[in-house]
Amino acid sequence: MIAKEFEDFLLNYTEHYLIPSKDLAIVVDTHNMDHVLLLITSNGYSRIPVISKEKIYCGTVSISDIMSYQADNNLAAWELSQTDVAVAVNDKVETILADAPLTEIMHKLVDNPFLPVLDSDKHFMGIITRKSILKAVNALLHDFTEDYDITPKEKHDN
């Protein structure tokens, strides 16, 4: 459990945690693989979110997901280029709901560089990155005493 004072401090940074979907490279599940590969490689991303036309989160996709699909299905480059990305989506990536507690976010970010954020209807809202949380923790470590006093508890002799 996170100490209440630390959680309150970190929650002041919540607007900095979420990178909204409008600011991200995202693909629709009906986009062809050529488009997706171009987007991933030209932006240097390792993995990008995939949504439906209704903005429902489908999963994420990476170059290795696409190459694995191509190899598993013995597809020539021209066949792959005409294939919808939906078939290569990794739907096993951890996600969180928009109202997830900070503790859950922190636990999931230990093993994930980012977490897709969904509303209760599974619409994709954006991502929270490990980097954004680390920036808030950095602020906590440097600025906490501007708003809070820290006093050690007295030790009781038994």
Rank of each mutant, 00 (worst) to 15 (best):
146 E>F: 07
85 V>L: 04
78 W>F: 15
82 Q>N: 15
21 S>M: 07
116 P>A: 02
73 N>D: 03
1 M>F: 10
103 T>L: 13
125 M>I: 08
19 I>Q: 00
8 D>S: 13
73 N>L: 04
36 V>F: 08
103 T>R: 11
77 A>G: 10
70 Q>C: 11
81 S>V: 02
72 D>G: 14
46 S>E: 13
104 E>K: 09
131 K>C: 00
21 S>H: 11
106 M>P: 00
129 T>W: 03
67 M>V: 15
37 L>T: 10
5 E>Q: 12
141 L>S: 07
52 S>Q: 05
96 I>M: 07
86 A>L: 07
131 K>Q: 13
148 Y>P: 04
155 K>R: 12
115 L>C: 01
55 K>P: 02
117 V>K: 04
115 L>S: 01
152 P>D: 13
116 P>Y: 01
156 H>Y: 10
52 S>T: 05
121 D>Q: 12
134 L>V: 05
19 I>F: 04
76 A>T: 15
146 E>C: 03
128 I>Y: 02
60 T>L: 03
55 K>F: 09
59 G>L: 00
24 L>M: 15
131 K>M: 09
97 L>H: 12
31 H>G: 03
132 S>F: 06
75 L>A: 04
110 V>F: 10
56 I>S: 09
148 Y>R: 01
116 P>V: 02
101 P>S: 10
35 H>C: 05
13 Y>C: 07
111 D>P: 00
119 D>K: 08
26 I>S: 00
137 V>A: 08
10 L>A: 05
114 F>S: 06
137 V>Q: 02
137 V>M: 07
8 D>G: 05
69 Y>A: 02
22 K>A: 07
158 N>A: 11
112 N>S: 04
116 P>C: 02
90 N>S: 04
92 K>Q: 11
111 D>C: 01
98 A>R: 13
91 D>P: 08
23 D>C: 09
63 I>H: 13
126 G>C: 01
2 I>M: 10
134 L>D: 06
72 D>T: 14
82 Q>G: 14
91 D>H: 11
151 T>M: 10
121 D>S: 10
32 N>V: 05
138 N>S: 08
138 N>P: 01
86 A>G: 05
69 Y>G: 02
57 Y>T: 03
108 K>L: 14
155 K>P: 07
67 M>G: 08
53 K>R: 14
78 W>C: 10
59 G>F: 01
74 N>H: 15
49 P>S: 04
79 E>G: 08
86 A>S: 14
56 I>T: 15
104 E>T: 14
59 G>W: 01
96 I>V: 15
157 D>M: 11
90 N>Q: 02
65 D>W: 01
126 G>V: 02
73 N>A: 06
139 A>V: 04
158 N>Q: 12
107 H>Y: 11
102 L>A: 06
92 K>R: 13
48 I>G: 00
23 D>P: 06
11 L>P: 04
137 V>L: 13
135 K>P: 00
82 Q>L: 14
54 E>A: 05
